[in-house]
């Protein structure tokens, strides 16, 4: 288990669970059109893929997903991070990945356990995206949770 006190500096102190609750509330209060706009804003916040990662896309692909999605959930010095690349033709997927990246950034890996399926339900995004697309988001969420928990335990 990583030490809470190790997380310092500019990173917000609230836990992954707290951040997810805040983001879910942010979405839940909006109507459909505003939810989509907020997702698109998140998408724009996802940084371009660092060159070092581009060479090793191989097994980072999320195959359950409808569009090319590459994820590198990482734990460095006990802190979680999510590097990702999502095709520009899939802005809602990209936005969701950006949400997850913001939620886990700099937090102890064990807190990734808070990334459970109920998060998507709490945002109300299933009503906006439909069942099939939400299934893709669940696959992404599960991949990030499992990878961070495994990396944190290792």
């Amino acid at each position: 288990m990583a030490d809470e006190a190790a997380v310092t500096g500019g990173t917000a102190g609230d836990s992954v669970a707290e951040r997810l609750a805040r983001i879910a509330d942010e979405f839940a209060d909006l109507d459909s059109r505003d939810k989509l706009e907020l997702l698109v804003e998140y998408a724009a916040s996802l940084p371009p893929l660092p060159a070092a990662y581009a060479a090793r896309r191989g097994d980072s692909r999320v195959h359950e997903c409808q569009t090319p999605v590459f994820l590198w959930p990482e734990v460095i010095d006990g802190r979680a991070g999510l590097v990702a690349e999502v095709a520009p033709e899939a802005p809602t997927v990209k936005g969701f990945v950006a949400v997850l990246a913001e939620a886990v950034a700099g937090r102890p890996a064990a807190e990734a356990a808070a990334l459970d399926d109920t998060f998507i339900d709490r945002t109300g995004l299933t009503d906006v995206l439909g069942i099939l697309r939400s299934r893709g988001l669940r696959a992404i969420l599960a991949r990030v949770r499992k990878s961070l928990l495994a990396a944190g335990a290792g």
Binding site: L36, P91, T92, K94
Partner: peptide, 9 residues
């Protein structure tokens, strides 16, 4: 669209 974000953007 396949992705609703495209119309939004």
């Amino acid at each position: 669209d396949e992705d609703r974000g495209l119309y939004t953007m």
